[in-house]
Design a protein around this nucleic acid. Structure first.
Length: 566
RNA sequence: GCGUCCGUGGCUCAGCUGGAUAGAGCAUCUGAUUGCGGUUCAGAAGGUCGCAGGUUCGAAUCCUGCCGGACGUACCA
């Protein structure tokens, strides 16, 4: 149930009833408590359009509002703002209806769409580093979210497993022979060592180049070595995914190389459609409004990632039936995707009813606003970053209570990983973000720990109470109760907006509001104290239960776990 | 040079499909609470929303110019 949608329906009906041609009706959350819960600001522009007094328009609309149980009071203020006050009784009944529903009242799409979310996409030649963190976290959250709302989500891990560097790597792998297993433990070192050999030894370099040709020619032995290498490298990624509690599996891998056979066909097809031109020896497509063309085939005959991306779009639309394809890739590639999408449209690979979107995100910076690097200036390995998160979380929580070593480890991991993910998801993905351990592991402010703490605190109420909440009439007499109840009902509209805009931070903002409102409610409205009347206690237990359930559900969608005790 | 994005209290961020006195958190200061987990709650202080114009009844939000920053600018991915 989306309150906003319900209210918009009412206003639209009122406009129809009073013969006002209103066009699109938009209701917004009120900017201040004194202005009610929601507000309709459309009377002013409407007045201008109709050449009438805005207050009169507002009055006509308000008087024509159909009978309903949602609104308790409507008032017109200022030049023509329509302030909507919701009925506490209505809110209470909605909370009762949602609180014990596994989906908390959130509906699912009546006609599911097929959606492809392309994220993580590590390069197999190297170890995953912080550059892959945001894509992996944001992409996974988005995939979870769309799936929860009823889309058929297809996760695609478009791993980089093809290209000239693999000739070098498998040549080195072969050279090491049996002992190679150990060397692959650290891909970064392996890559460096191979590169060193390549640069220093001409014979090796020659062999590496030969291997590229053989590999592309389908040489069985080379393919075998290559496959072996990819398997190992993918194993590293999976270790990271598992640590990150990210749902990507081997099933989701659709490697770059899997499109190899399609590439000549793409070129031929673009040619046949008259889109391809030759420019400076390369085969390109010029996109109207773009200065430089999209290069489809290099002058030496090689293909580029644009070609692969086009093949991928074609595959995803025609074979997977995608109606929305979301690329969770950093902002630097905006230009690339703009062009690839344009060409995909021109070539008909993605008809107009398929939504192509670049879910772009900014860079990860250190505390001083510089690109995130190790102290020595190298790239930070993701696995090490995650280990540090757990280590720091352990340190942050040990001072509190005594845990068994196993429990401590489990808690530290959930808290540490949660902090890293939440910190990333809680800011507008478009901007660069500053990675600061101290802030993300703080218990105060908009952090995962604050949410996890709120959750654990509620769970502790039920432990103390001795049983779980049971359905009961909800009473919203006090302001903190009413505000909490209303916030609980806003879950669906927040999730929908976050899904529509691919903006996970809408959800974290909501959670922060919710947790804060709960703390205030808890402060003002005792639950278990002996002087609380039974029916109030039962009502408040329902509110507490619904809050915990909302926190857990939304955090789960974001890929963050909660704990019964902290 | 051209293009894209970004400039909001000391710091980190919301708000940007134009709406009422620009919101949080951290840090700072004050108070409540002998605590149903006070790591909470209440309050104070702190802002020419980069600058200058423009559009509008109304601009942080839209338009133009400028300043500052990041990124991108054809055969890497």
């Amino acid at each position: 149930m989306q309150i906003k949608t319900e209210l918009e329906r009412l206003i639209r009906q009122a406009c129809e009833n009073s013969g006002i041609d209103a066009g699109e009706i938009r209701v917004a959350e009120a900017t201040k408590a004194e202005f009610g819960d929601y507000q309709f600001n459309g009377a002013m522009p409407l007045a201008k359009k109709l050449g009438q007094n805005p207050r009169q328009i507002a009055t006509r609309i308000v008087e024509a509002l159909p009978e309903n149980e949602i609104l308790e009071r409507v008032e017109i203020a200022g030049p023509g703002f329509v302030n909507l006050h919701l009925s506490p009784g209505w809110i209470a009944r909605q909370v009762e209806a949602c609180a014990f529903d596994p989906r908390l009242g959130v509906g699912t799409r009546s006609e599911p769409r097929r959606v492809v979310v392309d994220y993580s996409s590590p390069n197999m030649a190297k170890e995953m580093h912080v550059g892959h963190l945001r894509s992996t976290i944001i992409g996974d959250a988005l995939a979870n979210l769309l799936g929860f709302l009823g889309d058929e989500v297809i996760r695609q891990n478009h791993i980089g497993d093809w290209g000239t560097q693999f000739g070098m790597l498998i040549a080195y792998l072969e050279e090491l022979g049996e002992g190679a297993e150990g060397s692959l433990q650290d891909l970064e070192e392996f890559y460096k060592a191979a590169k060193k050999r390549f640069d220093e030894d001409e014979a090796f370099a020659h062999k590496a180049r030969e291997y590229v040709v053989k590999l592309q020619g389908g040489d069985v032995r080379c393919l075998h070595l290559w496959q072996d290498f990819i398997d190992k490298s993918l194993g590293h990624c999976e270790e990271v995914y598992s640590k990150l509690h990210v749902r990507l599996t081997r099933e989701d891998v659709r490697a770059e190389s899997s499109y190899n056979d399609d590439l000549p066909a793409i070129v031929a097809d673009l040619e046949a459609k008259g889109l391809l031109q030759t420019s400076e020896g390369a085969k390109v497509v010029f996109v109207p409004g773009e200065e430089t063309p999209l290069i489809i085939q290099k002058s030496d005959g090689g293909y580029l990632y644009a070609t692969t991306d086009l093949a991928a779009i074609r595959f995803r639309v025609s074979q997977l039936g995608a109606k929305r394809i979301s690329y969770v890739v950093d902002a630097r590639q905006a230009g690339h995707f703009r062009q690839v999408f344009a060409v995909a449209r021109m070539a008909g690979y993605a008809p107009e009813d398929v939504r192509l979107e670049h879910v772009s995100f900014g860079m990860m910076l250190d505390k001083n606003g510089r690109p995130f690097k190790t102290r020595e200036g190298g790239t930070v390995k993701l696995i090490e970053l995650l280990e540090e998160a757990t280590r720091r979380a352990r340190k942050a929580i040990t001072q509190k209570e005594a845990y068994g070593p196993e429990e401590l480890e489990k808690i530290a991991e959930i808290v540490g990983i949660g902090a890293v993910k939440y910190a990333d998801l809680s800011i507008n993905r478009e901007s660069n973000y500053i990675f600061d351990w101290d802030r993300m592991l703080s218990l105060e402010g908009n952090t995962s720990l604050y949410q996890q703490y709120a959750y654990a605190r509620i769970r502790s109420i039920f432990r103390k109470h001795g049983s779980e909440a049971e359905p009961a009439p909800v009473i919203l007499e006090e302001e903190p109760e009413r505000r909490l109840g209303l916030k609980l009902l806003q879950l669906e509209e927040v999730l929908q907006a976050a899904a529509q805009d691919a903006m996970p931070h809408y959800i974290t903002s909501y959670l922060y509001d919710l947790a804060t409102l709960f703390m205030k409610f808890y402060e003002r409205c005792p639950i278990l104290r002996s002087d609380v009347p039974e029916e109030r206690r039962r009502s408040r237990l329902v509110l507490a239960h619904a809050t915990a359930a909302t926190l857990r559900l939304a955090l789960e969608i974001l890929g963050i776990k909660v704990l019964e005790r902290l």
